[in-house]
């Protein structure tokens, strides 16, 4: 009974939407509302592959997808490089102080995503605080274009996604068996050797999962690139958004979504496997 209700919920709100996207990816663009003709009319297949043709014919979409994957990799890599030592750092603190520091990690999220991004816009623009500070210190002689560049984009991305990499990594590292490291130290390993031979291999799966947990949503991120990124370097999420809201080509947006999902399927499967261990 409960399972039937839960299945109905998942069927309606998770599976059905994905199936509809898949169907509309094969629909034909049309005028009117909604702006497409369904691929099946009175039982006959009337679908087309036009959207797929557009996607593959034009380098524009492939370039957006590749840029997305590069940005997502860089974001996930930077997040992991920060989150791993941060998680270890929290665990070096006295247990009584850890909840406070974890709260400090989460609290910046609470002012809201849009406000945080707006703060970055204000800080990074040519007349912003960062450039003013650098000018005042004499590091630079003219404002550096930070906003609408890959630097600004990565700042915003890492700022947004860092807690999502840090929290699961912290949980995994906190749950590790400390006796293994004590045993290694007892057997004569120095602190660095203990870290390299025990801590790192023992947490590799968790680190991989944390990387993917950032990488997968980051690959489809739309809002941060729209606010902080270079306007001419469109990413996959932005391409879907643009086709949908600006060009009003719903079949093409659906096809692009399916293509993005297809590309993300291998990392998704890997994430599921890493998470189960």
């Amino acid at each position: 009974m409960i399972r039937a209700l839960a299945s109905a919920w998942l069927g309606l709100l998770v599976m059905a939407p994905l199936l509809v996207v898949a169907a509309i990816a094969f629909a034909v663009p049309d005028q009117g509302l909604p702006p497409f003709r369904l691929p099946i009319i009175e039982g006959r297949w009337e679908g087309g592959n036009e959207s797929w043709g557009v996607l593959t014919a034009d380098d524009f979409y492939l370039a957006a997808l590749l840029r997305s994957l590069v940005v997502a990799s860089a974001t996930a890599g930077l997040c992991l490089a920060l989150a791993y030592p941060m998680a270890l750092g929290i665990l070096r603190l006295a247990p009584a102080r850890r909840p406070l520091v974890l709260a400090l990690v989460v609290l910046p999220l609470c002012i809201g995503f849009v406000l945080r991004m707006a703060a970055w816009v204000g800080l990074l623009r040519d007349s912003g605080l960062v450039n003013q500070a650098l000018l005042a210190m004499g590091v630079i002689s003219a404002p550096v274009p930070l906003l609408y560049s890959s630097t600004g984009l990565l700042m915003g991305m890492v700022h947004s996604y860092l807690p999502f990499a840090l929290l699961p990594l912290y949980a995994a590292l906190a749950a590790r068996d400390m006796r293994l490291e004590e045993a290694a130290a007892d057997l004569g390993a120095g602190p660095f050797t203990v870290f390299r031979s025990i801590t790192l291999p023992g947490s590799a799966a968790a680190a991989g999962a944390a990387f993917l947990l950032v990488f997968i949503p980051a690959a489809g991120e739309f809002v941060i690139p729209a606010l902080l990124g270079a306007p001419d370097a469109l990413l996959a999420g932005g391409a879907i958004w643009q086709e949908f809201f600006t060009a009003r080509d719903w079949p093409l947006a659906a096809a692009a979504s399916m293509a993005l999902l297809a590309v993300l399927l291998p990392p998704l499967a890997l994430w599921q496997r890493l998470g189960r261990r």
Binding site: P217, S257, L260
Partner: peptide
Amino acid sequence: PLVLPEVVSGLALLLL
């Protein structure tokens, strides 16, 4: 829904 890019989830729900 944990991992689907939000743009894809949003588009899918709207189309549904």
